[in-house]
Design a protein around this nucleic acid. Structure first.
Length: 292
DNA sequence: TTAGGGTTACAG
DNA sequence: CTGTAACCCTAA
């Protein structure tokens, strides 16, 4: 009677993923204690986390838990077909991308009228953030968002606006995007950019190079979950690569939310959760890399 | 506390 | 009725 089944929300699920990525599988109590996740996972117990994690992975691989057991006999063949859309039904759903692109950002007051404080200029805001972050290698979206949110009173949909602006500035050549990082374009010397030699070099064993392709590697939910499940027994390089892929996925999730350009709470929450996820993933990546 | 087997509620 | 996801029980 008292428990009509409390279904997991996207935020909770994302928090769980981030927690696992940060602390590792099986550290349910630790994840629950982490102040970052304790907020959203407050109504969940460590056992709940464990069960949910099992469900996520099990369903992602082959179907139900029962079938998963049977599947062990069959081979967990990564038949990753078109179920890539399983990422979460956050974007393309009922109405397609209706009015995503034409966002009148420069004019400040787009359709979101909640802007009390017009903000200097979105362009300057972004540039200011990147400039003040003073990251030689450039700043990633999460960092930029964080900076802006900490230094300005931002409207609720600032992330979308900034993200879109980021795209435009990159397209304009004002900014240069390298490996998810944005930096101010050096006046004119945009010539030698192909020399990308990131501080973090993964082993070029697998498809690392193609990640640099213009189109991001979209990973399926099952793929990512599978990676998370195995991250425990990975080598540092593999873990780093997995984390990088996780970041890419989060990046995609954010992009999806933007494209959807919806004020639906689900999209917002998902984008936010994705950021947390990305942050955690990146932390894990750094940590693992430095320790090896 | 956790991992895994088992049970129940809910949706299709 | 069947499959799935949340929940429960218990050995280790």
């Amino acid at each position: 009677m008292g428990a009509p089944k409390q279904k997991w929300t996207a935020e909770e699920e994302a928090a769980l993923k981030a927690g696992v990525l940060k602390h590792g599988t099986g550290k349910w109590r630790t994840i629950l204690s982490d102040p970052v996740f304790s907020a959203t996972l407050q109504s969940r117990s460590n056992v709940d986390l464990k069960d949910k994690w099992r469900n996520i992975n099990v369903t992602a691989i082959w179907g139900s838990r029962k079938k998963a057991k049977l599947a062990l006999k069959r081979i967990p063949i990564p038949k990753q077909d078109e179920n890539a859309m399983t990422l979460i039904n956050v974007s393309h759903n009922a109405e397609e991308i209706v009015d995503a692109k034409p966002l009148a950002i420069s004019s400040g007051t787009s359709r979101a009228d909640g802007l009390k404080k017009p903000i200097p200029s979105l362009d300057n805001l972004v540039l200011d953030a990147i400039t003040n972050l003073k990251e030689l290698r450039g700043s990633d979206r999460a960092s930029i968002f964080e900076y802006i949110e900490e230094h300005y009173r931002t409207p609720t949909n600032i992330k979308r606006l900034v993200a879109t602006k980021l795209k435009h500035l990159t397209a304009n050549g004002t900014l240069i995007k390298i490996k998810h990082k944005y930096r101010i374009a050096p006046s004119s010397a945009i010539a030698g950019v192909k020399k990308k030699s990131p501080p973090l070099v993964f082993e070029g064993r697998q498809k690392d190079s193609l990640k640099q392709e213009k189109s991001i590697n979209i990973l399926t939910k099952s793929q990512i979950d599978g990676e998370l499940l195995k991250i425990k027994g990975m080598t540092a390089q593999e873990a780093a690569a997995a984390a990088a892929r996780a970041v890419a996925e989060a990046e995609v999730a954010i992009a999806e939310a933007e494209e959807a350009a919806r004020e639906a709470e689900k999209a917002e929450a998902e984008a936010e959760a994705a950021q947390i996820f990305a942050k955690a993933a990146f932390k894990a990546l750094k940590y693992k890399t430095l320790r090896t």
